[in-house]
């Protein structure tokens, strides 16, 4: 910091504030929209509410249905995160650490998963889930979400695992640490930044996913929030203030999850065993 003077710091602050301002305006209006009436939402969508109408938010917060949907979403998203991180990091570790015949082919095979978004194969995917008897079952969402996250998770994780110093493994190997032991004792703890990042991506994708739960879930008690939001659309017509309030509340868990994972996005290498 010694070399950076006052003006660069000011410039940095200015750039960050401007970008942050542009980024935050739509988010803020989403949040504030929940305090407005329908008429005000139309005539002044971005202003501060003339009257802070708390009833929309409190209606949602006091509705047991809201909590059911949140719990269902949380179960699905957290399971998808855990399953993806576990299976993808194991596979990525094999690709990064072990050279074996067919490794490249298997990696290319996994890469195919990046070429195909959900929407493209939703009908065949539905048929598959139905044939496995997983309709109206949270696993019917969790497993496909995990599978569709697999490709990018493996690619990202492997790329980061490869950046870990090779000497580390050699030293551990001499000390009698096998491949599996090394994975759990060194690779995973040293990779918290990327694990946290991938985990966040998977969480958000799963959290906001709409199309898959729509075709898999019919039982209302299993609905995740993107489906449940329909119960809050108002008695008739779309009451956007309700939707905005609902959405604002559903961002919170994802933000909390993000804040939590942020703690792990710290320099693993400086803290870890490289220096010690």
């Amino acid at each position: 910091m010694t070399r950076s003077g006052f003006f660069p710091a000011l410039l940095r602050a200015a750039v960050l504030s401007i970008v942050a301002g542009i980024v935050i305006l739509p988010l803020l209006s989403t949040f504030l929209g929940g305090f407005k009436t329908m008429g005000e939402l139309r005539s002044s969508p971005f202003g501060i509410p003339a009257i802070w109408d708390l009833s929309t938010y409190s209606d949602i917060l006091f509705s047991p249905l809201f909590w059911t949907y949140m719990r269902n979403s949380l179960v699905v998203s957290l399971s998808a995160v855990v399953l993806t991180l576990l299976s993808a990091s194991m596979a990525a570790y094999v690709f990064a650490q072990i050279r074996f015949f067919g490794s490249r082919y298997i990696q290319s095979y996994l890469l195919l998963g990046l070429m195909f978004p959900f929407a493209t194969a939703i009908v065949p995917l539905f048929i598959q889930i139905r044939d496995l008897n997983l309709l109206d079952n949270p696993l019917g969402i969790i497993l496909p979400q995990t599978a569709f996250s697999m490709a990018f998770a493996v690619v990202l994780l492997r790329s980061f695992f490869q950046q870990l110093p090779k000497e580390l493994f050699e030293a551990a190997y001499v000390d009698g640490c096998g491949y599996i032991g090394f994975f759990f004792r060194f690779t995973l703890p040293l990779s918290t930044p990327i694990l946290a990042t991938v985990g966040t991506f998977v969480f958000v994708q799963s959290w906001n996913n709409y199309l898959l739960p729509l075709v898999v879930l019919n039982d209302r008690s299993l609905y995740t929030w993107p489906l449940g939001i329909m119960q809050f659309r108002g008695e008739f017509l779309i009451e956007w203030n309700k939707i905005l309030a609902f959405v604002s509340l559903t961002i919170l868990p994802a933000l909390i999850f993000f804040t939590f994972t942020q703690k792990y996005i710290v320099a693993g290498l400086t803290r870890g065993s490289v220096k010690g």
């Binding site: 299976s87 995917l125 598959q128």
Partner: peptide, 8 residues
């Protein structure tokens, strides 16, 4: 997982 839910 990948084969069942993506490739198939």
């Amino acid at each position: 997982l990948f084969t069942i839910f993506v490739i198939w």
